[in-house]
Structure formats: C-alpha cells, structure tokens
Amino acid sequence: MPQIALSDTAEIVTTLAGGSEIVLVCEHASAHIPPDLNDLGLAAVDRLSHAVWDPGALAVAQHMARMLDATLVASGISRLVYDCNRPPHAPDAMPEQSELIRVSGNLGLDAAARKARTDSYYTPFKTTLAAAIAGRSDPIIITVHSFTPTYHGKPRAVEIGILHDTDTRLADAMLAIAAQFSPMAIQRNAPYGPEDGVTHTLREHAIAGGHPNIMLELRNDLIADDSAQHAMAQMLSDWITAALKNLERTTR
C-alpha cells in the first residue's frame, strides 16, 4: 500500500508513493495562500471557494492512490497563487479573474513577480512529478479535478468528465467501460477541453513521452463528504483497472 512521503518542498508538493505504474496528479489540491500574499486580496467568503482550489479532488485522489497502489503528486498551493496545470507564460497561471471573483493580488504582476512564483511553486511541482513518472517503467498519468455544478449561473448536466488531448487511448477505453456500467452523465472533454488550456499536465508529462493518460473532472456536489469521495474513488478505480486491461489486450 502507498505510504505518505513528503518531498523537500513539503508545503508546495506532497507525494503518496505507490508501487504500480499509475501516477495520479492533483494540481488544484490545496486552498493554501502563503501569508505574505495577504490572501491575494480575496474576501473571506471567496478564500475557500472553487476559484481557490478543487474541493473534494484531493480526497478522491488519495482514496484512488490506495485502491490502485498508485503514486500521487499533489500541489500544496492555491491555483490562484500558481495554477500548476498551466505553463508559466499562460495568463491564467496567475489569474486576475476567476469566474466572478476579482483576484486583486494578481493584478499587474510584472515579469519578476511572475518568475518568483513560477520558481517557488510551479518548478518544484513539475520537478517532483517528472521524477515520479521517471521512476516508472511504463507510467500511466491520471489527473484528478473537480468542477462546480453551475458556472456563470448556468447549471451543468455533466457529472463526470473524461478528458484527453491528442492521445485518446485511455479516455476511449474509460468511456467504453463507463457506458456499460454507469447511469451517470459522463461526457468526453466536458465541462472543459483542450481548447480551454486544461491539458497542460497531460501534454507536458504524458503525451510527450507517449504515456497513456486522462484527466478526470468530477462535479463537486457528488464528492462533498468522505463517503461520497470513497464511493467515487472506488468506481473510478474499477473503471481504470478494467480500461487498462482492455488496453493491454489491444496492444498485444
């Protein structure tokens, strides 16, 4: 079973080390904003909102890591400080606006300030994840996220999104399994897709090396407590196990 192992940058990245080929990633695991950033100017009500992190995603990923004997790499910093699923040049790596929330602490960041955040938060995350992947002979990369039931006032019907970029192998296998066994509203590349810039981690760490990969998006009202998180993790882990077996058969 996986054991907790904190990296040298424990406040920035946490790893859960497992023995299988699966590397789970949770880029938006934490709502932590370092004290010197003065809460990025956010109101108290906004500091634990979905704008700041992905509620429930880390708990689901931790359950999955144990079920799949997987390695988990999770960011320890709010995505408003640095979104570890974005490259440094992307404007939304340090967003000035998140849906309806103005992030005043990110307004007008100059090149030096952006580089300082990149060096402090993104680089350790990227390095830790790259090392975890390099430690596997045939790595499989799966990122875990959550999303809000409504966005800009519009309800979202999708309950689980299975996302991919140019490599569709694992997503195709997962969607086929899900269609057989679940009555839930499961969609490909929803509620976001590659055109929204959400597949950076997949591109950077999986596609470039030819590793099977997917991004999971879970509606956060479905993973609001530990019981629901555990049940979601079990269902997803079962699908992943079955999908990987199907992939193995097709590549023989």
Rank of each mutant, 00 (worst) to 15 (best):
M1D: 13
M1S: 11
I4W: 14
L6M: 11
D8T: 15
A10G: 04
T15Y: 00
L16E: 13
L16F: 06
A17C: 07
A17I: 11
S20H: 09
V23F: 00
H28G: 03
H32Q: 06
P34V: 13
P35H: 10
A44K: 10
H50A: 14
V52N: 04
L58G: 02
A59C: 07
Q62C: 08
Q62I: 09
A65V: 01
M67T: 02
A70C: 06
A70N: 03
V73D: 15
A74N: 13
G76T: 00
S78W: 07
V81F: 11
C84N: 15
R86Y: 01
R86C: 03
A112M: 09
Y121L: 03
I133H: 04
R136Y: 08
I140V: 13
F147V: 01
T150V: 06
H152M: 12
R156E: 03
I160T: 03
L163T: 02
T166R: 15
A171P: 05
I186Y: 02
R188K: 14
G193T: 03
P194C: 08
P194Q: 12
V198F: 09
H200I: 02
R203H: 08
E204Y: 03
H205S: 12
I207W: 04
G209I: 07
H211A: 11
I214E: 00
L216D: 02
S227T: 15
H230R: 14
S237G: 15
D238R: 11
A242Y: 00
T250R: 07
